[in-house]
């Protein structure tokens, strides 16, 4: 039985297969309306994440399946102290596949050791969020048509931003990739990420978005999250470090793709939303399609 806990659980070939299926779903959605008929997805969300949960539920519903689950720990047996293992063992009796979100790192891995059905990690604390990375990969594929020979700018919170770390992990497996890491000193990428993934992939670090922009094929913006900071002052100072405005974009390539895992705070000006280079709302839609492909793969449905 298969699970998706870490994006690196998937080989490049498997990612390519998922993307092929997602492309076909986008082109021929009607062929998929019944694929998961009578199958149930359990969304076990130990912390709220409406966006991710809705994306999973929309994916399952669009495949003709149904959904059940809980959206925060207080409404579930967790509040009575049941272990993750016992919960998923029980849910295995009711559902066919589980998407789990948990504030503690490694909880979905623990779940996968006990469950009788596939587990999808829908985010475990600041650790992994592989379906966000799959969403990012499908977006890059749709926008650029390739995973090779791209200069990718990552901007904002590169220290705590797990989506950034996973994207680096996934993209550093392709050839001709170069990363430009744009962040204030306080939010630079941690050394363990560099050690793990930059062995063969070139990268530059800079504090200037303006200088980096003209060279980029992809600009991946992230938000600076308040909950990662111990004091309000640091947060307020850093949250406005990098804001993308129409003026800044003047020097960017005409075929730049601007991505963002959403929700944004203020790091991308709403004036950019109608620019054809703004890919972030398309990205949200791709999130549903790649989750459809993933659910089918893990349920062995073709």
């Amino acid at each position: 039985m298969q699970n998706l806990i870490n994006i690196l659980d998937l080989s490049c070939e498997e990612i390519s297969e998922l993307i092929t299926v997602a492309d076909d779903i986008i082109d021929n959605p009607e062929n998929y309306y019944e694929k998961c008929a009578h199958k149930k997805l359990a969304t076990l969300f130990y912390e709220p994440s409406t966006r991710t949960r809705l994306s999973f539920e929309a994916a399952m519903l669009e495949l003709g399946g149904s959904v059940l689950g809980f959206s925060e720990a207080s409404s579930s047996s967790v509040s009575k102290g049941e272990s993750v293992g016992d919960t998923v063992k029980t849910v295995s009796a009711y559902a066919d596949i589980i998407a789990m979100r948990h504030p503690k790192e490694g909880a979905p891995l623990v779940a996968s050791q006990r469950a009788d059905i596939p587990i999808i990690n829908a985010g475990d604390g600041g650790h992994n969020h592989p379906t966000q990375t799959l969403t990012d990969l499908l977006t890059i594929h749709r926008e650029k048509g390739t995973f090779e020979n791209l200069t990718i700018g990552l901007c904002g919170d590169l220290k705590f931003g797990r989506t950034v770390h996973s994207l680096i992990a996934a993209m550093s497996r392709y050839s001709g990739i170069k990363f430009i890491l744009i962040s204030p000193e306080e939010l630079k990428i941690p050394s363990f990420v560099k050690e793990d993934y930059f062995g063969y992939t070139p990268y530059e670090e800079t504090t200037s978005l303006d200088e980096a922009l003209p060279n980029l094929d992809i600009l991946y913006m992230t938000r600076v999250q308040k909950e990662r900071f111990f004091n309000e002052e640091d947060y307020l100072r850093l949250k406005d470090s990098y804001i993308l405005t129409p003026g800044k974009l003047e020097n960017a390539k005409s075929d730049l793709s601007i991505m963002h895992p959403l929700p944004r705070v203020n790091e991308i000006s709403v004036d950019i939303d109608d620019d054809p280079r703004a890919a972030y709302f398309r990205q949200a839609k791709y999130g549903k399609y790649i989750r459809m492909a993933l659910i089918m793969k893990l349920l062995n449905i073709h």
Partner: peptide, 13 residues
């Protein structure tokens, strides 16, 4: 020793 690790709250693991 990571306080955010699942092993910090579930003792049977």
């Amino acid at each position: 020793k990571n306080p955010r690790c699942i092993t910090s709250i579930e003792h049977g693991i």
